[in-house]
Amino acid sequence: MDELTRLAVQARRGEPSVMASFIRATQSEVYSLCAYLVDKDSAEDLAQETYLRIFRALPSFRRESSARTWLLSITRRVCMDELRRRVRRRRRETLVPEFSAEFGTELPGSPAADDDQAEIRELLTQLPEDQRSAFVLTQILGLSYADAGDICQCPPGTIGSRVARARSDLIQALERGTPRRTEMEARPDAMD
């Protein structure tokens, strides 16, 4: 059993200091996942919602599974719920146009990329949800395909092909606007 799983099992007893250690050990991954899957502005609220759900579900946590993948799959579920809520809300707003102004700013493509991280995050929001989850879990949180598969409830091979497709799409998006010829000329070794 890894350290985090031990902490999770101990935290079931409701001792605040142990609960605090568990939160401290996991908060940055939970926050990052929320920020990358949904957006940075909602990440704090989503992280809090995630911890409420985690501690409600803790009594049914089985010590055989890894606490890290367990809590990340709850985090992902919280994010998916939020994204679904937004889709519903947006659909309503298309019917009632006067309320749509508020959300115009978070549509893909509009926010200014003020730093590198924001640019990657922005590009990720344009990926289909399954690719985004696979990419964020493996590339940003550094999980194995197997663990990411546990979280997304799909085989590791599916994670692999989603990551590959996400990479293709991100490359395409990043290099859009860059003249391709320059790219090729700068890389004579790539010729056959």
Partner: peptide, 22 residues
């Protein structure tokens, strides 16, 4: 590029989160 940008220290929000959970 992704690996370089993804590492970023975040403020510790343990007290707020713990209070919310309790």
């Amino acid at each position: 590029r992704v690996r370089l940008t993804s590492a970023r220290a975040l403020p510790d929000r343990t007290p707020q989160l713990l209070a919310a959970v309790l």
